[in-house]
Design a protein around this nucleic acid. Structure first.
Lengths: 392, 392
DNA sequence: AAAAATACCGCAAACGTTTCCGAAAACGGT
DNA sequence: ACCGTTTTCGGAAACGTTTGCGGTATTTTT
């Protein structure tokens, strides 16, 4: 018969049902329930990681002493500290960051949400973020929304649940509701917006200087002798679209050129729409002599389509884009664009986060503007077309 | 006088030095040390997150009951469970993943180390990894080695310290020692290599089919009528370089073409070296009629240099690259390349990790080969040059 | 009616740190 | 010898979960 695991005798032991598939017993003498075979408390821990307690045990000191020694606390004797450091080195002790994070509720991790890592602009932003972050001892967790509002929200929630120390986000194109980045939703986790920002929530922001970039690029076209400058703008709802349009219009006004409505088209950035707009312009009695595409991929679409249609660039029509990528220099003719410095944008976003961590409640949300540089290549050099050598 | 905080009387209380800047007292009657003003144990917790205990307290049940209810355990009464779920919803309870991870020693995070996120190939790999990972409920932590061995090692260590569940790595160009990815160093964390793998450590690997890709692209050139096919190879030490060279040589042999030593150049992928090699070839009494650049950026360098030198592509010299990127389709003439499917590579690497997690010790490391597809564009269509329309 | 089984839930020990508080010993000045 | 001081260290609680096992009430079976 079964022996009571307390009094160690079989007297008074009776069965008492099953629990989780195992037979249970009851000792009347001891008034004690028990199971036939207990599991060992720690079943041969797989790949044991050295802990503070292990170090402490070797030296016969308390875990708290080891912790203090490792963290450079003052209250520890120099000899003790040396001994502890030595043992820790020998045992290859590595602090468990999870435990540290749980205790301190700081993960030293920042979450980044971007629409698409495959787009060079965002990849470069991430690179900038990561550089600043890793220099400050932060790790980076990256999520892609793939331009979907739902994915964006779920990414934000996942990052918050992972207890990131901060959230750097560039909204998806679909996003119109921003409740998921409000302090209530992020549980007070600092949020920094970059590139596609939103006004509804008071956060630190990094934006690029759309207005000035568009102004400069338009002015450049005018200086090249263009008088009928078309603009291939994006959706009117988009802030970047509005700002770039405004810069373009200001440059026209400044140089006393009329803003012709037939030379302004809003598209959704799709290649087909860009080509369709081009064909409408080419069919005009007086086609444009320059086109400003506010999206860099559309500028490429135009270059290709113009070549197919045997229109000489820049002599007949100059083309400028917005956003300088590797390709802009490689294509023939080289594309004149504004370098948006995505690396700087990322760096700055990360710096704003660090600032916020340091200043805590004292931090005043502010907006940092990263200005672009005009990069002149062949596609816009009407006057001097062909004279310049390839700019690679 | 100071009152003893135990017997609450000033009798027998005497000062007993300072500790951490604060006056200490000693009550002789109680044999008890104390400080003048104790800190409250929990000084108004900032932004309190709802915990299991909070939910438990509301309902007057034990935290363990709440835990079981939320995790769908069997031992909970339906009414109790409903009530707990309801309260958890009301209090917006979100489990603390840090605590869960600490307990289960599983973070549901995988670490990825790549040379450079700004390179489209790697960005796309990451995208593939992330898609598979997030579908399986894993988060992704990304590090860049920037082609530096030291950074790679420190990235690996940081990820291991963060207790990632797995490590997906593409080595830097500098890396020749692989101790940092050995099981001892990664503390048993599963490692999956992709793209740039190493033979020294027994891990799951995902590689691209360099040999076949090179073979196919070379054969394609031969079919187009090329007979003097030059190869712009990479450093001989690189595995990809050797494999692609071997594929190229096999295609030549298969078609009974001689492998001419003067048409083979090993470079370090630098644009200047590519152009220098080209100029040497053009100076030959009998220049090549096709060039296979095993690196896609070098293929672009060649196209640009050939245009500068007024050499017609593909009529005089055909050019093919390796690795299909956005640009290959955009440039004029379109570049014939092998699509390496970086997205699939990433997906497969993530899948191998998931497999390893599932099978645990039973997992047999295996190597998965992702084969490339030949993408034919204008730059190699010698026979039919100009007939095809732009492939965008 | 006693024994056995079931259903449900609580206690407490972990996971690995950090840190508040107090103890003990050593020290120094009357 | 006494008292105040300093130095150094240990105990234990806490961070928020999960989970093995035991207790109790209720139901079912002999």
């Amino acid at each position: 018969m079964m022996k009571c695991s307390k009094c160690n005798s079989p007297d008074g032991v009776q069965r008492a049902g099953f629990i989780r598939g195992r037979q249970r017993y009851f000792c009347k003498l001891c008034d004690y329930h028990f199971i036939d075979q207990k599991l060992p408390r720690t079943p041969e821990r797989r790949s044991h990681q050295t802990t503070i307690s292990d170090v402490a045990k070797v030296l016969g000191v308390a875990p708290s002493t080891v912790s203090r020694a490792l963290n450079g606390h003052a209250d520890i004797n120099t000899n003790t500290r040396q001994a502890i450091l030595e043992v820790a080195r020998q045992l290859d002790y590595q602090p468990n960051l999870l435990a540290q994070s749980l205790k301190s509720s700081a993960t030293h991790t920042i979450g980044v949400v971007i629409p698409d890592i495959e787009r060079p602009f965002f990849a470069t932003c991430v690179s900038g973020i990561q550089q600043v972050a890793s220099e400050a001892g932060y790790r980076v967790m990256i999520c892609q929304s793939k331009e979907s509002y739902e994915m964006e929200v779920s990414n934000v929630q996942a990052l918050i649940a992972s207890r990131v120390d901060g959230l750097l986000i560039c909204h998806s194109r679909e996003t119109e509701n921003f409740d998921h980045v409000r302090p209530a939703a992020t549980r007070g986790v600092p949020v920094v917006h970059f590139d596609r920002v939103c006004d509804e929530v008071e956060t630190a922001k990094v934006i690029l200087d759309d207005w000035n970039g568009a102004y400069n690029v338009t002015e450049h076209l005018i200086e090249q002798g263009a008088r009928r400058i078309a603009i291939l703008a994006g959706p009117e709802s988009l802030l970047i679209s509005r700002n770039r349009l405004a810069g373009y219009l200001s440059a026209l006004t400044k140089h006393r050129l009329p803003a012709l409505p037939e030379l302004r088209t809003h598209i959704n950035f799709r290649p087909e729409s860009a080509v369709a707009a081009l064909d409408r312009w080419l069919a005009l009695p007086e086609p444009p002599d320059a086109i400003f595409a506010i999206n860099y991929t559309n500028a490429f679409d135009l270059l290709v389509a113009l070549k197919e249609r045997q229109v000489r660039v820049p002599e007949e029509i100059a083309v400028v884009g917005f956003g300088d990528e590797f390709m802009a220099a490689m294509i023939e003719p080289g594309l004149t664009t504004v370098n948006l410095h995505p690396h700087r944008i990322g760096q700055q976003a990360a710096r704003l986060f660090l600032e916020q961590v340091e200043q805590k409640e004292r931090f005043q949300p502010r907006t940092f503007v990263v200005s672009g540089d005009l990069i002149i290549r062949k596609s816009s050099l009407k006057g001097l077309g062909g004279v310049f050598s390839l700019d690679i």
